[in-house]
Design a protein around this nucleic acid. Sequence first.
DNA 1: ACCCAGGTGCTGC
DNA 2: GCAGCACATGGG
Length: 296
Amino acid sequence: MRIEFFNPARICASGQIFRMYPISNGVFDVYSADRRVRLSVTEHADDEADRRITEVEFSCSEDEFQTYWRRFFDLDRDYISILKRIPDDDAFLKAASEYGFGIRVLHQELWETMVSFIISQQKQIPSIRSCIEGLCERFGEEKEDEFGKWHAFPTPGAIAKGGVQGLKGLSLGYRERYIYETAVQYLEHGMSQEKLEGMTYDQAKKYLKSFTGIGEKVANCILLFSAGFTDAFPIDTHIKDILYREYCSMKSIRRQETLTLSDYEALARKHFACYSPDRGLIQQWIFAYEINQSIS
DNA sequence: ACCCAGGTGCTGC
DNA sequence: GCAGCACATGGG
């Protein structure tokens, strides 16, 4: 099928999903909870306009595509109209959004997203990936499909049953307790994706922050990457760097180390409020751009 | 031996 | 509300 604004390679490297892997040229495996799908992408090199369209083949059935992956990849949103709102005088954002062309903000499964971003704190992306792989191998149901064997993401029940001790040896460090307690709380609360999505942004964030190991930043990631709150704007170290370097007008009198979280929130409000209610999509483009600049 | 990574919890003011 | 510190682990 032909999709406008869809670049799996960039999504893969955007830091919002950890179980998406490039297999070979134009082929990607995407895992979500107890599903996986293979994407085969063929570039359109014909004319200029066609380069913005991607031809993608999904390995799943038409029914599974319609009922799950279509929403997962956020394929029904008009990203082009959001791009058009970026003013020419913001050179940084122009460049970031050019890099981010084709990066959609995914609608991932709630429990997996909660655990993934609890793990993400104070870790680099490759390390987050291997922690999650370790969890899946130890606690995830073994599955097999036309492409071979693999493991589902563990259920909260499986984690809770294993206890904190069950999480040893996976390089989770102090996050072991966070993950175990969140699993127990998830079950106790009867937490669910529908429940969270039915709340307002403030209610949902407050609820998420009541789980052990979920604070302001991780809550915003979950709201953005799983619960469809496209206005959520997670502020992490990279976003702080960007806000200071590109958007702080007081660099001469304030060193970056002296800025507090509320200073950064004020900067974000001032420069990104105009993209509401889609600030999170912008956040994702500048984040992806930043982490892929810093590699070189 | 440092410093940093998609931070959070806890304490004390 | 805000600052200061401990918290594992791996990589530069």
